[in-house]
C-alpha cells in the first residue's frame, strides 16, 4: 500500500512538473503569430477573452495578467 501511495504522489508530482515545464514555453496566439503589421487578436477584446473564459471584461481588471499586451490598444476597424 505504501508503494502505491508513493507511486500516486510521484505521478502527480511529475505531472505538475511537466505542466510547469510545458506551460513556461507556451505563448498566446497574439504573441506567437503577431507582427508589427498584423495582430491576430487582441487580449481582452476578442470573443473569448484573454483567459478563454468567454468573458473579455473580467480579464482586463487583473493587473498581473500573464502575457498581457503592452502599449496602446488598437481601435476596432471601421471598415
Amino acid at each position: 500500500m505504501k508503494a502505491f501511495i508513493v507511486a500516486v504522489v510521484a505521478a502527480i508530482g511529475l505531472a505538475v512538473a511537466a505542466m510547469y515545464a510545458l506551460t513556461s514555453n507556451q505563448r498566446f496566439a497574439y504573441q506567437a503569430f503577431a507582427t508589427t503589421g498584423a495582430r491576430v487578436s487582441e487580449p481582452g477584446t476578442n470573443l473569448v477573452g484573454e483567459k478563454w473564459t468567454g468573458d473579455p471584461n473580467t480579464n482586463d481588471k487583473s493587473e498581473s495578467a500573464h502575457g498581457k499586451a503592452t502599449g496602446e490598444p488598437s481601435h476596432p476597424k471601421r471598415s
Binding site: 508503494a3 502505491f4 507511486a7 500516486v8 510521484a10 505521478a11
Partner: peptide, 14 residues
C-alpha cells in the same frame, strides 16, 4: 520489491 511495485503502480495509475 518496493521499487518494482512503485514503478508498476505509478505506470498503472497513469
Amino acid at each position: 520489491n518496493a521499487f518494482e511495485r512503485f514503478t508498476h503502480w505509478m505506470t498503472a495509475v497513469c
